[in-house]
Design a protein around this nucleic acid. Sequence first.
DNA 1: AGGTGTTCCGAAAACGTTTAAGTAAGTATA
DNA 2: TATACTTACTTAAACGTTTTCGGAACACCT
Lengths: 345, 345
Amino acid sequence: MNVTIKTIAQAAGVSPAAVSKALNGYTDIGEETRARIVRISAEMGYTPNALARNLVKKTSDILGLLIPDISTPIYAEIFKGIDAEAKRRGFNLFLCDTNRRTEFEVSYVRTLMENRARGIIVAPVDNDASHILALTKAQVPLVFIGGKVNDSMDNYVANDNKLGSALAVGHIASLGHRDILMLCDNYRTKTKKDRVEGYREAMEARGLEPRASIAPEGAAEGIDYGCQAALEAFGSGRMPTAIYASSDMVALGVMRAAAMRGIAIPGDLSLVGYDDIMFASLPTVDLTTVAQPKFEMGALAVELLCEAMSEELAGIKHRRVVKPSLVVRGSCVAPRSGAGEGASR
Amino acid sequence: MNVTIKTIAQAAGVSPAAVSKALNGYTDIGEETRARIVRISAEMGYTPNALARNLVKKTSDILGLLIPDISTPIYAEIFKGIDAEAKRRGFNLFLCDTNRRTEFEVSYVRTLMENRARGIIVAPVDNDASHILALTKAQVPLVFIGGKVNDSMDNYVANDNKLGSALAVGHIASLGHRDILMLCDNYRTKTKKDRVEGYREAMEARGLEPRASIAPEGAAEGIDYGCQAALEAFGSGRMPTAIYASSDMVALGVMRAAAMRGIAIPGDLSLVGYDDIMFASLPTVDLTTVAQPKFEMGALAVELLCEAMSEELAGIKHRRVVKPSLVVRGSCVAPRSGAGEGASR
DNA sequence: AGGTGTTCCGAAAACGTTTAAGTAAGTATA
DNA sequence: TATACTTACTTAAACGTTTTCGGAACACCT
């Protein structure tokens, strides 16, 4: 632990500067001297001190990444994209799980800044990121990604949520469904608002009546919301023939509710989700869903960050909106004949 | 970015040393002076330079964590436990996804050492960790965790795999099954060997004939292996009434195979897995399985690491083996009467 | 007036690098 | 042979902190 450049210099009979140069590929070191230095440093088990190096170089190869919850599959896949691209470009990625808490967001950003990270990618916990901006004050480049981005953020990568909804509705409607209920949690975010708006537009474009069950502020999310909202819909007088869930997790909640009520999917109820998390493809789930190119989005985020880092023009906004696609599996079939007709107009 | 302690010192009309002391809670600074310094440093947006601090302090609050694949649910949950405990103890956790590649293991360990991490927790990719030991040379404390640990590693936390198998077999057998097939992937690891051995012992203790289908070296793993091995078993002359899978992922593969062949679970075939990944609890999966206390194991790993870090006696081995428990869900029922009798002796 | 203690602060070294500038020797050029 | 250019190094400053040691100022007690 305490073998430094100085140690090696003594052992090799040269100056510390010579050692540094030899180890870092400078050309003004003789070949035999370099070989001797390299050999000795290997023998002594030398480990360079990155703290000292970064201190004098006034930079580091560290990139920070803030993720609300890495055990959520969609974030895990975004991470994979970011990680791969960061590696490809020679950065060291520092993943921070913020546990869906803004307090942790600020403490992690502070730590990253103190360690002189080159840039930070954040999948924010909330659509309000002011606490983060207050810390960075444009001193370190920032790129946002994920379901909570909005236009108040300078740099971000997002997906075209309206288009995603159009794909989902188009698929269900083409099977003959007319009474398509949308279930949406987390309505504060622009992402979810866009999905609902896209749903409404797509329904109206087909002359169908949109019907959306939107979670009120502070309500449950994900599976819990899906289950509870679906049970409500099942209990109401008007049973839809298809449900469009605002995320796969919500769709899983619908499946749970359907299992509880003995409702067959897709026989009695067609279902489509959003996100294409890994488990949507399992044989026992087999969920038709709208897929975001998560891995590519992650890679894009790194790309944008590099742009933002290299740019002197700090004023420029770096944004990218990618297109989702529909993944057709087994959770949607044509409605039983005659069902759902009452909903048309 | 360029406001340092020196800057603040000038602005406050004191020495750099005074600033450092004021900001770090030393008692030999007057109250008004301290207040002035704190105010000014806040006004100027001062961010301490952790590189410089750690350089002189010859240490850091960084802990490294190597995970083969964070998108695998079981690793995500172990991570959560480690993360929470690391936070609680005031460390900064640096999560590195090694992508199941030993090359990345060595490059990450090198980076962590260069950045003077205090200690490293590694969930190894392989049961051979010699490439890691060669790098650290006991210069930095190491704790191993996960499914690839074995007794050649000094410090580790593992679960009692034999006990887990005993719980699984006990449950299935108590329902009346006699022909219980075990499917095991990844047999190089001690973990899997223990699970198989535990299965054999539990079967023999009941006078049942053990029958294990063990993946050969280089075969598929997880879902793919489970599916393929199950199809093989279904095609053989001897159809088991229950399958014990060496992991939940393998069990999911069995489910896929069963769906392909029209075999009902649990009606035609009972199934039990190992790990209790999050999705085992989904209504459409509903898998009975052996659960490891993953979160606690993570926390334990941090505890062991702290022991290893504080200890001058570096020779001591720090190990903990935790007990798994059975989570009963809906994938096991009594066999159809008369079935499976041929397997008894 | 002399001694002793306390309080508050400054000087300076140290941490392990990188790098601009300098230098001594050797080699080629005029 | 003096000059210029290479080659192969060395010197020393700098990066931004922490921390030991010491010292000035002041109060308190004989």
